Amino acid sequence: DEVEIEDFQYDEDSETYFYPCPCGDNFSITKEDLENGEDVATCPSCSLIIKVIYD
């Protein structure tokens, strides 16, 4: 799936974006990952991944 970065929750302390996963955990991707060109957020509890859409 693809999710807009605006739909993520941002945690300023950890500089990490979170998005709810269907399994009950959260996908996460850090601001640093995005700045380095990464665009895939992973869920630590299951095998799902999502593509992050940002400009």
Rank of each mutant, 00 (worst) to 15 (best):
D1F: 12
D1A: 08
D1G: 15
E2A: 11
E2V: 06
E2C: 13
E2P: 13
V3T: 05
V3G: 01
V3E: 01
E4M: 08
E4R: 04
I5G: 00
I5D: 00
I5Q: 02
E6N: 15
E6D: 15
D7N: 11
D7G: 05
F8L: 08
F8N: 00
F8Q: 00
Q9A: 02
Q9E: 12
Q9I: 11
Q9S: 05
Q9K: 06
Q9L: 08
Y10M: 15
Y10L: 15
D11F: 13
D11W: 02
D11T: 07
D11L: 14
D13N: 15
D13A: 09
D13Q: 13
D13L: 05
S14R: 13
E15N: 01
E15C: 15
E15W: 03
E15L: 04
T16G: 14
T16R: 14
T16L: 13
T16D: 07
T16M: 02
T16E: 05
Y17R: 03
F18V: 11
F18Q: 12
F18P: 00
F18K: 07
F18T: 08
Y19A: 03
Y19D: 04
Y19F: 12
Y19Q: 09
Y19I: 04
P20A: 05
P20Y: 04
P20C: 08
P20V: 07
C21V: 00
C21R: 00
P22R: 06
P22I: 09
P22M: 06
P22K: 12
P22N: 09
C23P: 00
C23Q: 05
C23W: 02
C23N: 11
C23G: 11
C23K: 06
G24W: 02
G24C: 05
G24D: 14
G24Y: 09
N26G: 11
N26V: 06
F27Q: 14
S28K: 15
S28T: 13
S28R: 14
S28I: 14
I29S: 05
I29N: 06
K31P: 05
K31R: 02
K31H: 01
K31A: 05
E32H: 15
E32M: 07
E32Q: 12
D33G: 11
D33N: 13
D33P: 05
D33A: 12
L34Q: 08
L34Y: 14
L34P: 03
E35N: 13
E35W: 03
E35M: 10
E35R: 06
E35I: 14
N36I: 02
G37L: 05
G37W: 04
G37H: 06
E38P: 13
E38A: 09
E38H: 07
D39S: 14
D39Q: 08
D39F: 04
D39L: 13
V40K: 08
A41E: 03
T42P: 04
T42C: 09
T42L: 03
C43W: 00
C43I: 00
P44Y: 08
P44T: 08
P44V: 02
P44M: 12
P44R: 13
S45N: 14
S45W: 02
S45P: 06
S45H: 08
S47K: 12
S47F: 11
L48N: 14
I49V: 09
I50G: 02
I50H: 09
I50M: 11
I50C: 07
I50D: 01
K51V: 05
K51E: 06
K51Y: 08
K51S: 07
K51G: 07
V52S: 05
V52D: 02
V52N: 05
I53Q: 12
I53T: 06
I53Y: 06
I53F: 06
I53A: 12
I53R: 08
Y54N: 12
Y54T: 14
Y54W: 08
Y54M: 04
Y54H: 14
D55T: 05
D55I: 01
